[in-house]
């Protein structure tokens, strides 16, 4: 019993419980802030119109296909002209 009271006295003298509680609260707050920020980041980016627009990206991808069409058309015209002798 006496040993136990010595332990408690040391904890009280060092302010251990207060340090621990404060530390734990700060760790939670800091990570909670990060969590909230991460959760709101996509919405913030959407609001700022910075998030890559999937449609735009996919349309951008199609532009390669339309280039192919243009090249094919130029090729067809050249072939037509060569055939026609003009």
């Amino acid at each position: 019993m006496e040993v136990f009271s010595v332990y408690l006295q040391r904890i009280a003298d060092g302010n251990a419980v207060a340090i621990s509680l404060t530390g734990m609260i700060i760790v939670f707050c800091a990570l909670l802030f990060i969590s909230v920020f991460i959760a709101s980041l996509p919405h913030i980016l959407n609001l700022l119109n910075l998030l890559p627009d999937e449609e735009a990206v996919s349309q951008g991808g199609k532009s390669g296909a339309s280039d192919d069409h243009v090249i094919a058309a130029i090729g067809a015209v050249l072939r037509y002209r060569m055939r026609g002798g003009k």
Binding site: Y7, L8, R10, I11, G14, A16, V17, I19, S20, L21, G23, M24, V27, F28, A30, L31, L32, I34, S35, V36, I38, A39
Partner: peptide, 25 residues
């Protein structure tokens, strides 16, 4: 993002041990 809080909860080991170490002198 809610899983971030688990990384905070696990830090309890640090602070409980701090109390234990002080109790041991």
């Amino acid at each position: 993002p809610k899983l971030v809080l688990l990384g905070a909860a696990a830090q309890i080991g640090i602070f409980v041990t701090l109390i234990g170490a002080m109790a041991l002198g």
